[in-house]
Amino acid sequence: MDRRDAAWYIDKVAQWVVFVGGISAIVFIVGIFVFITKEGLDFVLGPLNLGEFFTSIAWRPTSNNPTYGALALIVGTASVTGFAMLLSVPLSLGAALFIAEFATGKTREVLKVLVEMLAAIPSVVWGFVGMSIMHPLIMRIFDVPLGLGVLNAGLILGLMAAPIMTTIAEDALKAVPDTYREAAEALGATRWEVIFKVVIPASRNGLLAAVLLGVGRGFGETMAVLMASGHAINIPTSPFDSVRALTATIASELGDTVRGGDHWGSLFTLGILLFVVTFVINLTADIVVRGIRKK
């Protein structure tokens, strides 16, 4: 009777495989963090002046008298991401609502496939769209001398982030059981009342995850921003101003640095900053979500 049979062994092996999978995710994240920290550490402990880093816009790592002010880069990334979210959050939540709650049959399937295809467009293609289509378009429509800047990069990034946000948000909405919708409709709620009072509150966590994924995408995106933002160190005062993003700075400068030098270290410090910000965003979201759940 009490014999370890095949099912028992399969169960044990499966447990291990899943465990190793889960652990390796943690190991990779920690590993990456350790790596970028190690590379940036000499710089952080040595030449870095934190005051200058966060308050000065003078990013001159190659000058004879180098200064490392990252404020313009931070503002650049933040403004482009903010602009992108302004566009993509309503767009993708609207699209997700339509696909999940209103579209049926063929329409739904076609839309889903199209959105997934959009998500697969490489970012360099989006950058290309920014440079060759949006750039002249913005110049013509708004009558400005340059079409590369916050507006352009924000639009491109927004369009880039929207499909993946739509997909995640749609999954979250679909995960709300139909019985909830049916129960609310039986109480006499209209479609909109059902959506706003039942479906959205029930899928809040998933929707928040979708938005955060979008923010993360915006923060981390490099190529398209590099191409569409104008890549000029600048604190923007209008949506048409050029800016430079943290990621684009790392990508464009890392190849020209001496491994282990100050410039190299400063770029890794930007990396640490990106990592920390992403981490804080996720942590905040987690706390917010937990807070909502407790209530």
Binding site: V176, T179, Y180, E182, A183, A184, E185, A186, L187, G188, A189, K197, V198, P201, A202
Partner: peptide
């Protein structure tokens, strides 16, 4: 529908608090 009350075989609580479930309608 709002004038017809329905009770199904298995309870379908809305994903809301006890209070909000009853206050929904």
């Amino acid at each position: 529908r709002s004038r017809i009350g329905v009770v199904l075989p298995l309870p379908v609580g809305l994903p809301l608090s006890v209070y909000d479930n009853v206050a929904f309608s």
